[in-house]
Every structure is written in C-alpha cells, then in structure tokens.
Simulated assay, not measured.
Amino acid sequence: MTKAISLALIVGGIVLLYFGGQAFNSVSSDVARFFTGSPSNKAIMLIVGGVVATLAGITGMALSGRKR
C-alpha cells in the first residue's frame, strides 16, 4: 500500500468519524435511541467505517516504511 493511499484512508476515516458523530447526535438518532435503545444504523455504520478506514491507513503507513 502506498503512502498516498494510506494518507487518503486516514483522512477519509477521520471525515467519516466526524459525520458519524454528527449523525449520532442528530434528532433521528435520538428518536431511534428512544424506541430501540440504540442509535440509528447510519450513525453506527459511519463510525465503524471511519474506524476501519483510519486503522487501515495507519497500518498501511506503518508497513510502507518497513519495506526498505
């Protein structure tokens, strides 16, 4: 994995985490939490996607430096 792709994954993951946090605190998530006890699926998927993308980017950055 090249450093550019890894950096793009990190930035994209951070953006997804931001939007996931916004969705988690939204009115629709509050309504879903009231009836189901858990936040909306959109908020959960954005946060999980952000974590996965950020970890993949960090792993790619760490591995691309070792191959030399």
Rank of each mutant, 00 (worst) to 15 (best):
T59Y: 15
S28Y: 09
A32Y: 05
L46I: 09
S6Y: 03
I44N: 02
I14D: 03
V48S: 07
G49I: 06
V48P: 02
S40R: 01
Q22I: 15
A8G: 05
A56Y: 09
G20Y: 00
T54V: 10
G57H: 02
F34V: 10
S64T: 14
T59E: 13
G57K: 02
G60N: 07
A62E: 13
L16G: 01
D30K: 10
D30E: 15
R33S: 06
A53Q: 05
N25L: 12
S29L: 03
G60R: 01
Q22Y: 11
T36F: 09
M45A: 11
M61I: 15
N41A: 08
F24Q: 06
I14F: 08
A62L: 15
G49E: 06
T54R: 01
G13K: 00
G60F: 02
F19L: 10
F35G: 01
V27W: 13
V52Y: 10
S26A: 13
V31L: 13
T2G: 14
V27A: 14
S29Q: 02
V31R: 10
S6V: 05
R68L: 15
V52T: 12
V48M: 09
I5M: 11
K3I: 12
S40W: 00
Y18T: 12
N25W: 07
G60M: 04
V15D: 01
M45P: 04
L9P: 00
T54F: 08
I44C: 03
G21E: 00
G49T: 06
I47W: 03
F34Y: 12
V51G: 00
S28L: 10
L63S: 12
N25G: 10
L16W: 00
F34S: 12
A8N: 05
V52K: 09
G65H: 13
V31S: 09
T54Q: 02
L63D: 11
K42C: 04
G49Q: 05
F35R: 06
L46M: 12
F34W: 10
G65A: 14
M61H: 11
V51A: 06
A62H: 14
K67F: 15
V27M: 14
G12F: 08
